[in-house]
Design a protein around this nucleic acid. Structure first.
Lengths: 130, 130
DNA sequence: CCTTGCCTTGACGTCGGCGTCAAGGAATAC
DNA sequence: GTATTCCTTGACGCCGACGTCAAGGCAAGG
């Protein structure tokens, strides 16, 4: 199949496929007329890349998974290098989520304090006027 | 004070201050020789910006806080517009944290599955050989 | 006078993952 | 023949918050 069909079947763009090729991630065979040619295996590699991209992996981080599939393994994560990326990514995510949760809590307190201050300014010393 | 001193006292760079000025966020008075001149109030505005930046706010999102301080309010979040940004940011954070938690769980399962598969491949049908 | 250290504006570089446009070749439909 | 649609390479644009370099001005110390 050609680049347009592969892009459509994978739910991405031809530009993206050319970009992956430029990064050496998904090289293509060439037909006599110079057109890029792909097969079903390429679709599997591409699907693996897309899944990981959706997870927030950088392109380079998908490389071990692609290499693993290309080496004939049943899944992209059947290789130690891929598992290592999983673990790094998990640690990274845990750290990030923790940071964001901290920020979230601080912001929540800031908002509560600011709302309280605004309320007191609007109705000052309410209990003294009764 | 001049730009270098303000930058140092705020723990940032002169480039950053010029950038803020170019965005209209922190304009500076000028001395006769053309040098930018700042006062203690500018340091407060800048500190407010930096705190919010550290929280992950975009520069534009800090503008209501700066405007609020400049209007003479005691804090950057003493104005409704600032509170609105707080609330938007909280919602945004909650959404993001939720997404990341989902990804984290999926990744954790992927890793567990892949590790189990690798283990079974290494010691296949262990209970059948006993 | 000369050096040093601050300041000025202007402009290009960074990072990732593409989008988008341009100019032209190739294959298919009619 | 020609209209359409696919394909090719090349190259600039984008986003955000600056970093970094260049060329030159201004002030103070020795």
């Amino acid at each position: 199949m050609r680049i347009g069909e592969l892009a459509e079947r994978a739910g991405t763009s031809t530009r993206t496929l050319r970009y992956y090729e430029s990064r050496g991630l998904l090289p293509a065979r060439r037909a006599d007329n110079g057109y890029r040619t792909y097969d079903e295996d390429d679709l599997r590699l591409l699907s693996q890349i897309r899944v990981l991209q959706d997870f927030g992996f950088e392109l380079e981080e998908t490389r071990p998974f692609v290499d693993c599939l290309r080496a004939g393994h049943p899944a992209g994560d059947s290789c130690p290098a891929s598992l290592a990326v999983y673990r790094r990514k998990l640690a990274e995510l845990d750290g990030l989520i923790g940071q964001l949760a901290d920020v979230r809590d601080q912001l929540g307190r800031q908002l509560a304090d600011a709302e309280r201050a605004a309320g007191e300014a609007a109705v000052p010393k309410c209990e003294m006027t009764g």
